[in-house]
Amino acid sequence: MRRQIPFGLVFIFGIFMVFQFFVPHEKSEWVYEFLLDWIIVIGIFALALGIWSLFKVSVEKIKQGKEGGNYSYITLVGLYMMVAFGFTQQTGEGWGLYFLWIMLCSACIVSLMRLRASTDSGKKRMWALASVGFLVAAVLVAIFDDAWAFFLYTPEGLENSMFEIFFDHIMMPILATMFSLLAFYIASAAYRAFRARNVLASLLLLAALLVMSRFNPVIPGAEYVANASNWLMNVPNLAAQRAIVIGIGLGIVGTALKIILGIERGYMGRG
């Protein structure tokens, strides 16, 4: 029963969406929009599951004392700091003891992790004392420092300059750098294709070289290269793309139908 009801739900929602596609009426559209909103809301709840998993795995790594496990402290402190920034904001001109509070809380988290990872009772006691000490100090700072405040009901935290700075100067540079690594990787991938001596790899490489050369005026017959490259992109490329699109489309359609009809059940686990 516990297993059958979900498949019944899949069937009902799936069939509804199929019918909805053919019914343009406002009422049908209205239900469709509601369902899409619901999916977004459920996704947010799922994020809590994800954060819990990340936290749990990081804590486990520290506890197991695996090589590199200590880096999980950085993940946990980064996670904490960003959450803290997202729910606090300065109330005046300066920051007061805000950064001290951030550091005390971070130290408290690290101490708690060390406490969890320690096996020696003496060390356990030491880390327990340290975490309580840091926590008390952090609470006192939070109570007596008026330069900043918690904002748990309104989104002032999103305008916290530290929240923005972390986004602009930590997240964005790493994102852009990770993305730019592709320039190196694409070169090494091209080299790999060059080394693979078979007909298919050669065709791939030749087409890639032709298209790469399209803006290069140094190549003899640059105009012909550009024309050939354009033709390649507009004609054989169009044909192959269409064939792939039809294949993928039918694959999706076939799998979706199996899901609606309850033939494909692998995604639901065993129960």
Binding site: I244, L250, T255, E264
Partner: peptide, 22 residues
């Protein structure tokens, strides 16, 4: 490539009825 992913899914599912849609 593309549809082969779906074919692989049906094939590796090891259930004949999954191949029906293929």
């Amino acid at each position: 490539i593309g549809e082969e992913l779906y074919a692989a899914s049906a094939y590796l599912g090891r259930e004949p009825k999954l191949l029906g849609s293929l």
